[in-house]
Design a protein around this nucleic acid. Sequence first.
RNA 1: GCCCCUGUGGCGGAAUGGUAGACGCGGCAGACUCAAAAUCUGUUGCCUUCACGGGCGUGCUGGUUCGAGUCCGGCCAGGGGCACCA
Length: 871
Amino acid sequence: MTTERYNPRVVEPRWQSVWNERRLFETPSEDPRPKYYVLEMFPYPSGRIHMGHVRNYTMGDVLARYRRARGYNVLHPMGWDAFGLPAENAAQQKKVHPKDWTYDNIAAMRAQLKSMGLSLDWSREFATCDVEYYAQQQRLFLDFHDAGLVARKTAKVNWDPVDMTVLANEQVIDGMGWRSGAPVEIRELTQWFFTITKYSDDLLAALKTLDRWPEKVRVMQENWIGRSEGMRIRFALDPATTPAGESGVEVFTTRQDTLFGAKFVALAPDHPLAAAAAARSPALRKFIEECHHLGTAEAAIEQAEKLGFDTGIKALHPLDPGWQLPVYVANFVLMDYGTGAIFGCPAHDQRDLDFVNKYGLGNIPVVCPPGQDPATFVITDTAFVGDGRLINSRVLDGMSVDAAKEEVARRLESTTRGNRPVGERQVNYRLRDWGISRQRYWGCPIPMLHCPACGVVPVRREDLPVKLPDDVEFDRPGNPLDRHPTWRNAPCPQCGGPALRETDTMDTFVDSSWYFARFTAPRAPTPTVPAIVDHWLPVDQYIGGVEHAILHLLYSRFFARGMKATGHGGPDEPFAGMFTQGMVVHETYRNAAGDWVEPTSVSIEGEGDQRRAVARDSGAPIEIGAIEKMSKSKKNTVDPSDIIGNYGADTARWFMLSDSPPERDVIWTEAGVAGAHRFVQRVWRLLSGLSAQLPPSGLPRPGMFGDASLDLRRHVHRTIDTVTNDIEKLRFNRAVAQLYELSNVLTAHADSPMTPDHGWALREAAEALTQMLAPMMPHLAEECWKALGHAGLVAEAAWPEVEPALLKVDTILLPVQVNGKKRAELTISMDASNDEVEKAALALDAVQKLLEGRPPRRVVVVPNRIVNVVA
RNA sequence: GCCCCUGUGGCGGAAUGGUAGACGCGGCAGACUCAAAAUCUGUUGCCUUCACGGGCGUGCUGGUUCGAGUCCGGCCAGGGGCACCA
């Protein structure tokens, strides 16, 4: 019998249109089945999908199809994270409107995604730049505003004077704007913020409940929120040295136990007291000015020397008013953490130590490490930050660090000056409020107005949406909304007088902070429908790149809380299960000139050490470089469309699931893809070849099975068991290996005589294999399912059931160790007692030989696992 | 600097404290073929032995255990996150 080669180019579109016509993946919200919401991070519509998308969406699709087969009502939607800077760059460079560019890209990428055969509910699709979407986002903004979750305050930003825009820190390279190359200025701008810090404690505490999130992501969020417990302490100032009107300075510390080791107080350059002191000192003004010029870049901070300037002001020690400490302005003190001022204890803080060593202020060790003699303990270059006993600290001497912290806290809390305690316990967070203002056109307009009479006024809800004007120009740098002739003008909702619209638009992270909720009722005239969003959320499994482990996930968690608080429903935690996939990486190639070369123009020869690359056209030698994340700049990308065109979507999907554990990086190789494709063909040959000989589907199970049939059935059911488990735990690479093995076993059994029981067992195996392949390679599975004589779709078939009796075996092969080394094997009944096993093991020739006639010292029998004889 | 992860054949990787290397890629040998491709079968950690067998093997090093890739301590290497956060 001849079998035709499986042709994905014909087969895949055919099944895609069958699924589409039957509207198989459109999800009703009202359905008696249990719900399952699986979501992959929606893409930015750059124009082409990349291999990272293929990996991400394949994983999600496996889960969606598997859950459907398990009887769940699955929600698996797709949309577009469509606002953002690249559209405006394209507008400048290619003279296309950001809207046209974006929607054209969406159309191209939608077609690419459809060619992957993903079981998505396309009826719920939306883009965040759809007016219908951002209108609802503006409504949410106003609701958040009314609930006190929106603030307007000044913030320092990186300002590019040429492009006339604010830059993110990542867009500042060596102090220059990434596009303009102009030196970046630090400017204070009034910006819109979401007050995420109101939830600091809750966002931190609730991380403990996210037991289906990667530990790594939880730790990253924990560090980002950065809770520290300490004290806010007020230092009085010596009036003789202090500018008029200033009487004290507050510091934040987590080490109040080291208060007797204090050597100085330091202020941030922007601290009000620093400004007051600068008013009478030109030299200090100059110093503060220099601090401002120091870049915000990490590298600059890393190398920056600890610099300070003595203000001449003296602070009085809170536990000893007779003790004066110099007050410095120091470049390493941050205005926006704590109080913008610190007290320095050099012996037990490295930065403070560096500082005093530079300015010759000396240090007093106040915590002595265990085992050290306090009399000889000195600090020179390295601060001691560990635990120990307090020394040189008067009443605290002999206490542990914790006890001393407690004692100092008690004393300062009960000491008052001017009706206020000198110190208060305080919890500080590293987390800052979320600045969402962007001076850009292609984003969601912030629905606020500026009225000369009434100030900042929200747009009335009945006047929403504030639509982006289409008639804008990108011929000049800056925000086109600022110079639009008419759009800015609107009447004030309060007084009716002329007012100006806010021209800042929202950070695109806002768009992606609630899209998963919108998918539950994507056409509703309100942001959500609470009953529906409560039904679907939380997302049962969210999948995406680890690069969003902090910001996107944290903002979404904040938004969920905000939406709940403003009556839009949903749980506090939007993602019950989170999975961060690894990247798709590829070898890099360079020619003799050092230019990057695409994989498609390189051919590889030889193996191992002999492996060489040459240019496909000229034969010129090519250097094989490091394996790195696919990126356009290194030209080591592979276009998913090429792969799908050559091998079909199933091959690409199968390769993405094979070999590498999903959380780790996967190395894209031609050989690997070719291997995946060979398997596609092998499965088709096997199953289509077998189908002609098999008994019809649905025959009753024979009462008896021969040994071969029983072996096959046992293997099939073991595979169903493990593959089910592996998919549930997202261990796709293991599931793939099991299916390879099953197809090998099935192949080995396919030539056995076609007795009724064997035919039945073979059909069972063939169908189980097809069904288990279906979530991963849905087109191939449909084609095989049809070849096996089914009129219906495998996409609608129920997941195969395990017969528990078949997971058991009567006899097992037990390894026998002597002194921990395997020396023999023992075939014995599963039910044999430990005594029987021990006796049988000791009777083995190999064991006897090694014992040399002596009795064993000990015999360990682990039932159905191993025997270890200790000689 | 702080926090986290990873380290297993030629390669990607399997392995509830219990036979290390499943499965795939690659290699080798064979079958089919006039030949090649495709396909199928066998084999494939390293050393040693004609063979049976034996020895060595999970970055290094110490420990716990009848038994350690897995648990604990100390190193080394690679990767990631945060970073003047008091």
